[in-house]
């Protein structure tokens, strides 16, 4: 792939032509076939619904779903935005606390020893079962949902973080010692950068986890949001609404995931690209 020669941001404007050509070839290589499959599947779907006279409440036609968006997209945006807010807050809080704790656990034996049993116990609990308790604590606000979302993100990130912070190369640590580096410096300059691939792996996984947390939370304690919409759609057998909610979830999760991937690519520029 392209060699990352740092500190040369110039000459970019001149290269727009070349880079647009590169985007095109990237598209051809990576998206052409999936897109073709998508088109074929949608066409088959449309055809099958008509041919086999499948009722709309079982499986609506793709074109019907598409048309139904136009009527109430503003309402859908409102629910999507709420779920996004809950999931994002849960994501930030859960991952934030997990990473700080992971650093402390990796760095201080006492912290690790005293917290690890609790981590194991909490991890084996199905978080969803805690939702009623969270409602009692936080009331019917967005906070029990945020908490459920944060809890689901928390453990995978904690485990990955601890592993990442501990995975630093022994020789690198010896080098730092020979340079008389302080503990803070060792953490900043070796352990943290070294843990970045592990951290980003966890951050990618928890995009979906935090969405699951938010949606399940909404099933239990909400009167708005995409999770709430799916329940409502179910009650009224409004399959079109169900599909709209699912599509909104997919778009939200996918764009969020892509954002994390873009940030990862920037931060981990130094990693060998295949």
């Amino acid at each position: 792939m392209h060699l990352a020669i740092r500190g040369r941001p110039k000459a970019q404007a001149r290269n727009t032509d070349r880079s647009s050509r590169r985007v095109l070839s990237w598209f051809n290589q990576n998206l052409l076939i999936p897109l073709a499959i998508f088109v074929v599947v949608i066409a088959l779907w449309e055809w099958a619904v008509v041919a086999f006279e499948i009722p709309q409440y079982t499986l609506p036609r793709p074109s019907a779903i598409w048309v139904s968006f136009s009527g109430e997209s503003g309402d859908l945006m409102h629910h999507t935005w709420l779920t996004a807010k809950e999931a994002l807050l849960g994501y930030l809080i859960g991952n934030g606390i997990a990473l700080v704790l992971a650093a402390l656990m990796a760095e201080f034996k006492i912290v690790e020893k005293s917290l690890y049993p609790y981590v194991l116990v909490l991890r084996s609990l199905p978080i969803v079962a805690l939702a009623p308790l969270l409602i009692i604590w936080f009331g019917f606000t967005i906070w029990p949902i945020v908490a459920a979302s944060a809890l689901i993100c928390f453990f995978p990130t904690l485990v990955n973080g601890v592993e990442g912070f501990k995975a630093a190369d022994t020789t690198m640590l010896e080098l730092m010692r020979s340079l008389n580096a302080s503990r803070t410096q060792v953490f900043q300059r070796v352990k943290l950068p070294n843990a970045m691939p592990y951290i980003f792996a966890a951050l990618k996984i928890s995009v979906v986890s935090s969405m699951i947390g938010a949606i399940v939370g909404e099933w239990i304690a909400a009167d708005a949001g995409l999770g709430f919409l799916t329940i409502q759609a179910n009650n009224f057998v409004d399959t079109l609404l169900l599909f709209r909610a699912i599509i909104a979830m997919a778009v939200l999760a996918l764009s969020w995931f892509l954002l994390v991937v873009i940030i990862e690519k920037r931060v981990l520029k130094w990693q060998t690209s295949s």
């Binding site: 190369d169 020789t171 690198m172 010896e174 080098l175 300059r189 070796v190 950068p193 970045m196 130094w270 990693q271």
Partner: peptide, 10 residues
């Protein structure tokens, strides 16, 4: 050291 142990991110 035996391996250069350069920091790959620098």
């Amino acid at each position: 050291f035996q391996n250069a142990v350069l920091f790959p991110w620098l």
